[in-house]
Amino acid sequence: MGEPVVREFESLEGMPQAAADGLRQLLWALADTKLLLGYHYGEWTFGTPELEAAVASCSLSQAELGHVRLLHALLRKHWGEDPDALVEVRAVADFANITFLDAPIGDWPACVVMNAVVDLTATRVLATLHGSSFRPLRMSVDKMLDEERHHAHHGIGWFRTLGRRGGDGARAICDAAERALAAAALWLGPAGEPGDAALVAAGVKSTGNAEILAGLIGDVTAMADQAGITVLAPAPASFAHWNPNSRRGSAGGPAEDIVFHLRGAANAMFKLGE
């Protein structure tokens, strides 16, 4: 008996509608998460405990914004989305980022957790798109995954360093990591969510979100063990009011001042080509 044949898609033509809709939502969610990651890493170009970490934060920010461009280009080409509108016009409540990123990242342990857990969540999703049946996406994913290796080194290194040092820093990364895991669980959505199931069935994604969450919890637990701390797995999230577009369980969105800066609202009059 041979391997099951999964059709390859050069475009959305022929892709089941549920998978095409699920993919659009997933690309939105990845792009929004990476946009917020880029913003927060950029903020943390200053205030890091050492100069090397400042350079790294700046570099991570650039990489995330580069990934946003790749994802927005896919949304433009295949769904006709306007990348500017996705950032500048869309209602804040529609932003589908991981909610950990909604508020300012207040201290270095939270920034480390953003790197080690939140960024990793998006990377774990990207990893399920490696070898995707949607060829245009597959060609972008490998570049992103290659860059994300360096993000992981930075996150893991600092997570371990702060954990092993103990004291307030270790307690702070425990608290932040538990918040991050709960936010990641919500963002990934309920097991067997129809859009996600359609993506797996069409070979666009290799595994479903429930498996991704289990793998993520395993990664964080292993990292915590190395760091000598305990991070509790999140309690089952409530998906009673979960919205597959915003990947949130209730109304919300990034803080207004963050969105103001993301949109460049103060400098809108200087935009070219208007």
Partner: peptide
Amino acid sequence: SVNAADDDLAKAYAWTLYD
């Protein structure tokens, strides 16, 4: 060269600093 607490951070710092 980079100053780093461990191998993972050294890899990240080298990659981002000498790019």
